[in-house]
Amino acid sequence: MFSKYFGHYLLNRELLTREQLMDALEFQKSVHVKFGVIAVDEEYMTPLQVEEVHEKQKQMDKRFGEIAVDLGYLTNEQVEALISNQKQGHLFLAQALVDREYMTIEQFGAALRDYKIENSLSDEQFDAIRNGSIELLVENILGIEDEEKNSKYGQYLSLFAKNMIRFIDDQVYFEIDTLENPQSENWVVRQVIVGEAPLFTAIGANEEAFLHIASIYAEEELTEVDDLAEDAVSEFLNLHNGIYLVNMSNWGTELTMNPQEVVKNATVSGDVFLVSVNTSKGSFQLILSDKPENILIAQ
């Protein structure tokens, strides 16, 4: 998830164009992450040292790690650590950007450092995010200062991210939507969680995004929003909410939930918290509110 999120950070900082990012995200599926990229990412080596090792590699039949150790740039322990880190998602993006010549290793490393500084992340927090800690990433997206939103929606969003990755799309990327106007969507699936911590939950999507979620969850290609498609998106929300209830129960909060409902051409209004959920095949909105009684859905 961090890979996609960091890609959008690069886009917003105008270090990449949208086309370059889309191309790199697609291309990263086929790349092999090279040692030099990881060594710079981990700040074990400078880009210049990596270049030097690459030059030496052209002259001798040795691996990158061996040459770097010979030159005193890496220890054997660091080589071992780099091997085990080779599968981190964002490194595939880094390698794709370098291979496509959209960025140099140095520019990527500088952007990573800027990201860390701008988000006031400690080394430990940053490592955890890079290593796939969705909880920390979601907390970071929500804004560390906003404790209220974190406590209300943080757990729900973290789990939603995990379930999106698990069941729908591993290239998911969240953006907090600051719109306060009522949301109008082709399709809205809603489910209300009731109990001591009530929560209105809904997925709002245009037809294309709706069919994308439905097709993946139903495990068959759905080309029109029929009963099965409506049901598939409903079931995904229901499954996710069910797991959320189990988690909350394990933390001592017992909740139940009402049946889901699908509403066509709906406008949702009230005190809502909106999250744009971007997938590889389009975006939809996750609509949440801790005041379900104030939510209005009009057709």
Partner: peptide, 8 residues
């Protein structure tokens, strides 16, 4: 058979 497998 449910997604809500809470102890309760």
């Amino acid at each position: 058979a449910s997604s809500v497998g809470t102890n309760d």
